[in-house]
C-alpha cells in the first residue's frame, strides 16, 4: 500500500500543506531570486540549511557560474498623441538607454514579417511589437529576438507586448538575447493593454512618440550553486532518479509559482519518502537548479559535470510549469518505458491524476532527454500560469495548498516507484 500511504500522508495526513507552508516562509523571507543576486545567494543558503535540517543525505552545493544582470530605474512615457505613463519591465540582458533616455517615434508591428516588410519605416524609431499570444513557445520568440530583429532594420529600441495570456496592465519580463554581429538596443516589455492601444492609434494614422529611459548593468558572471540532496538507494545506490525544480526566479514578484512550487514539491517528495521510513532501491536525488531563467545555465553545467554517468540516470523529472491541480505527467522516452509509466500512473487514480502526455517539458532536463534518458514533467492546470509568469503577480497568492498537496503526492509516487522498481526504465 505504498502509493496509498504516500497519497494519504501528502493529502490528508500530517504532511498536508507542508510544501505550501515551507514555500510561503521561503518566498516571504527571501523574495525574488534573480541570477547573480544576493537574494538568490540567500535562497540557496536557506535551502542548504533546510535540507540538512530535514535529515536528507548528501546535502551539498555544486558550483556554477551564472549571468549577473541588474535592472536599474526604468520608465517610459508616451509624449504624443497624449501624455501617458507606459508600464515597462526591461528584459534580461538588455543594455541601458543613454542617461538622458531615448525619445523617438514609434512604429507598431504585429509580426516579424510585418517588420521586415516595413523595414524602411523602422529606421531611427522605437519598434513596438503587438504580437498576439498564440502559445508560449511560439510567442516568446518576440521577447527573445525582438531587439535583434528591430536593430537589424535600424530601430533605436524595442518594446514588446508581454508574453501573457491575460493582463491587468501587467508587464512580464524574461530573457532576451543579442547577436554578436547586430547592434545592441535597449529592450523592454510593455503591457498587453498599451501594446494594443498603440496598435489602434497607429492603424488610425496617429503619430506616436515615446520617451524611454532604462538603467541596466551587466556584470561578470557570478558564482552560484545547484543545490543537491538525496535519499541514497538501498540496492543500486549508483543509479539515480532525479527530481527537480529551479530556485532562481526573475526579479519581480516572489518567484512562488515559477518555480517555487516545482522546487518545493520536489523537496516534498524526498521528505514524504523519508517520513514514511522508505528507502527505494535506487538513489532519489533532488536538484534545485540555479540560473534556469537565463537558459538553463545551472542545468547545463550539471549535465557537463555528470554526463559520464548518463547510463545510471534512470529518469530525470522537472516541475516548472506550475503546481496547480495536477492531471498527470508529460513523458519523453521509449515506447516500452512509456507503457511502464502509464502503468505507474494508475496508482494515482485516488487523486484522479493518471494522464500521460506526449512529451516532457523542462529546460533543465532537456540535455539528458536529448541523449536518451527518459524524462517527465508535471502536468497541472496551466490555464492561469501565463497570467502571472515573470510578473509582479507571481506571489504566494497564486499558490493553493490543496493543489500543491496533490502535486506532491503525484511527484512522490512516480519518483518513488521508478526508483524502487527492480529494473531501470528501458531506453531505445
Amino acid at each position: 500500500n505504498i502509493a496509498k500511504a504516500i497519497i494519504d500522508l501528502a493529502v490528508h495526513g500530517k504532511a498536508q500543506n507542508r510544501s505550501y507552508e515551507r514555500l510561503a516562509v521561503f518566498a516571504d523571507t527571501i523574495g525574488p531570486r534573480l541570477s547573480g543576486s544576493k537574494n538568490l545567494e540567500a535562497g540557496i543558503k536557506y535551502m542548504f540549511n533546510a535540507l540538512q535540517k530535514d535529515g536528507l543525505e548528501n546535502v551539498h552545493l555544486e558550483p556554477v557560474k551564472v549571468p549577473h544582470w541588474e535592472r536599474g530605474e526604468e520608465f517610459a512615457v508616451m509624449l504624443e498623441p497624449r501624455n501617458h505613463s507606459i508600464a515597462i519591465l526591461g528584459l534580461g540582458s538588455s543594455i541601458a538607454t543613454p542617461p538622458e533616455g531615448i525619445t523617438a517615434e514609434v512604429i507598431v508591428v504585429a509580426s516579424f514579417d510585418e517588420l521586415h516588410k516595413r523595414a524602411q519605416e523602422a529606421k531611427g524609431k522605437i519598434v513596438v511589437y503587438n504580437e498576439p499570444f498564440i502559445s508560449y513557445g511560439e510567442t516568446v520568440q518576440y521577447r527573445l529576438q525582438g531587439a535583434v530583429e528591430a536593430a537589424k532594420v535600424g530601430a533605436v529600441a524595442s518594446l514588446i507586448r508581454s508574453v501573457a495570456s491575460f493582463s491587468i496592465h501587467s508587464p512580464h519580463t524574461g530573457e532576451q538575447s543579442y547577436q554578436p554581429d547586430v547592434p545592441q538596443i535597449p529592450t523592454a516589455c510593455i503591457s498587453v493593454e498599451d501594446a494594443e492601444m498603440m496598435s489602434r492609434m497607429s492603424l488610425r494614422g496617429t503619430k506616436i512618440v515615446v520617451h524611454l529611459r532604462m538603467g541596466a548593468k551587466t556584470y561578470p558572471d557570478s558564482l552560484s550553486f545547484n543545490t543537491v540532496a538525496e535519499i541514497v538507494g538501498s540496492k543500486y545506490p549508483e543509479q539515480v532518479v532525479l527530481v527537480s525544480g529551479h530556485l532562481d526566479s526573475w526579479d519581480v514578484g516572489q518567484g512562488a509559482m515559477d518555480d517555487g512550487g516545482g522546487a518545493f514539491i520536489s523537496w516534498e517528495a524526498l521528505s514524504l519518502i523519508k517520513d514514511l521510513g522508505l528507502r527505494p532501491k535506487r538513489t532519489l536525488r533532488l536538484v534545485l537548479w540555479t540560473g534556469e531563467e537565463q537558459g538553463g545555465v545551472g542545468a547545463e553545467q550539471y549535465y557537463q559535470l555528470h554526463k559520464e554517468n548518463i547510463s545510471n540516470f534512470d529518469i530525470v523529472m522537472e516541475s516548472d510549469e506550475g503546481t496547480f491541480k495536477p492531471s498527470g505527467l508529460g513523458f519523453t522516452g521509449s515506447a516500452a518505458s512509456r507503457d511502464i509509466v502509464k502503468e505507474i500512473m494508475t496508482l494515482l487514480q485516488p487523486i484522479n491524476a493518471t494522464d500521460v502526455y506526449d512529451t516532457a517539458d523542462g529546460t533543465d532536463i532537456s540535455y539528458w532527454m536529448r541523449d536518451g534518458v527518459p524524462g517527465a514533467s508535471l502536468h497541472s492546470d496551466i490555464n492561469k500560469y501565463f497570467w502571472f509568469h515573470h510578473s509582479q503577480g507571481d506571489t504566494m497568492t497564486v499558490q493553493d495548498p490543496n493543489q500543491m498537496n496533490l502535486c506532491a503526492a503525484l511527484w512522490t509516487v512516480v519518483s518513488y516507484v521508478i526508483a524502487d522498481m527492480e529494473d531501470m526504465l528501458p531506453r531505445d
Binding site: 500500500n1 505504498i2 502509493a3 496509498k4 543500486y236 543509479q239 547510463s311 521509449s334 516500452a336 507503457d339 511502464i340 502503468e343 505507474i344 494508475t346 496508482l347 509516487v413 518513488y416 516507484v417 524502487d420 522498481m421 527492480e422 529494473d423 531501470m424 528501458p426 531506453r427 531505445d428
Partner: peptide
C-alpha cells in the same frame, strides 16, 4: 546492473505490471 547493455528489460510487461500493482 539492473539494466542490460542494450537497455532492454529482462522482464515481460506482465511481470512489470504485477510489480507496479504491488505499490497500489
Amino acid at each position: 546492473k539492473s539494466l542490460r547493455r542494450d537497455g532492454s528489460s529482462l522482464k515481460s510487461f506482465e511481470d512489470i505490471k504485477n510489480e507496479i500493482a504491488g505499490y497500489t
